[in-house]
Design a protein around this nucleic acid. Structure first.
Lengths: 148, 148
DNA sequence: GCATATTGCGTGCGTCGCGCACGCTAGTGT
DNA sequence: ACACTAGCGTGCGCGACGCACGCAATATGC
C-alpha cells in the first residue's frame, strides 16, 4: 500500500481543517477585542501584521480575495480603529492599509493566546517531540503539498 | 522565551490554513466530478463517508452548520445523484442521508488524489521522516489544541 | 387512550459577504 | 496634449447562511 502515509496525513489534515474552522476557535482567540475582529476581518489584520503596510490590491492577492472585499473589510476595521488608511507617498492614487497600535495589539493578543493554547495542549508530549514536530510541520508547510 | 514552540506551530498552522482554503485546491481535487461537488457540498460528502448514513441533524452538528444548510446541500447532491435520502427504519419521521455509489466514488477519488499529491511532495524527505511526521500529526490532531 | 409536548425535517425570509463591472482619480507613454 | 493604464471605492446581483415557522411523526403526561 504505497499511499499509506499520504492517506494518513490527508485524513489528519482533514479533521484538523474541519476543527480549526469552527467558529468557537475564533471566538475564544478574539474574545474581548471588539466585534470588528471576527473570522472575516481577521485575515486582513494578520496579513498586514505579516507584511507591514500594504496596498489593498496586494493584500487581496495574498489572502485570496477580491479587491472589493478587502476594501470593505478594511473599512470596518478602520471604523473600529484597528486599521488606518494612509496615502502612499510614492503613488498618490494608492492608499496603504496599515495597522494602528490597537490593531497590532489585537493581533499580538490572538497570537499569544493561540501559542499558549498550543503549548498547553502539548505539555504532555515527551520532551523534545514538540520541537521536532514544529520543525517538521514548518517544513511540511514550506515545501509540502500546499506550497504553491 | 517559553512560547517559542507554540508560536512556531501557530504560524505554520496559520499559513497552512490560509493556503489550504484557497479555491484552487478544491478545484484540482474535485476536477471532473461534476459541478455539484464543490467546497460547499464537499463537507457533506466527506462527513457521510466518515460516519455512514446519518440524519441531517447529526451531520449538521458535526460539520458545524445549521440543519437548513445541510438540507439544502443534501438536496443539491441528491439531484446530482451523489446522495440518497432514505427513510430511517427506526423512526419514520427521520430521513437518513446516505451516499450513493457515485458519491462514494467521488469521495474516494478526491481522497486518492490528495494522498498522491501529498506523497509526491514528500518524496524528497529523508526516508522515514514522513512516517514519523504523519504519526505526530495524527497525535497532534487527536490530542492537540483542537481536540474539542 | 387521548391531548400535549417534543423531535426531525424542509422552506420562506432577511442578512451578509462575495465577485463583477463601473466610475473616478492619478500616474504613464508617445 | 491626449490616450491609456493602474489603483480604489461603490452599486448590483448572487449565493450561502441562520432563524423561525409549519408539518409530520413520536414520546410523554394524566
Amino acid at each position: 500500500m504505497p499511499n499509506d502515509v499520504g492517506h494518513e496525513i490527508a485524513d489528519a489534515l482533514g479533521t484538523l481543517l474541519r476543527r480549526s474552522t469552527r467558529e468557537r476557535i475564533y471566538r475564544r482567540l478574539t474574545e474581548g477585542l471588539g466585534e470588528a475582529v471576527d473570522e472575516v476581518t481577521y485575515p486582513v489584520l494578520s496579513g498586514l501584521a505579516r507584511t507591514g503596510p500594504r496596498s489593498a490590491a496586494g493584500l487581496a492577492d495574498e489572502i485570496g480575495l477580491d479587491r472589493s472585499g478587502v476594501t470593505r473589510r478594511a473599512t470596518r476595521l478602520e471604523q473600529a480603529g484597528l486599521l488606518r488608511r494612509e496615502p502612499d507617498p510614492a503613488d498618490r492614487r494608492a492608499t496603504l492599509l496599515a495597522l494602528t497600535e490597537a490593531g497590532r495589539a489585537a493581533i499580538e493578543t490572538t497570537r499569544q493566546r493561540l501559542a499558549t493554547h498550543i503549548e498547553d495542549s502539548l505539555a504532555s508530549w515527551p520532551p523534545g517531540e514538540a520541537q521536532t514536530f514544529a520543525r517538521q510541520l514548518r517544513r511540511f508547510v514550506d515545501h509540502g503539498p500546499f506550497t504553491a
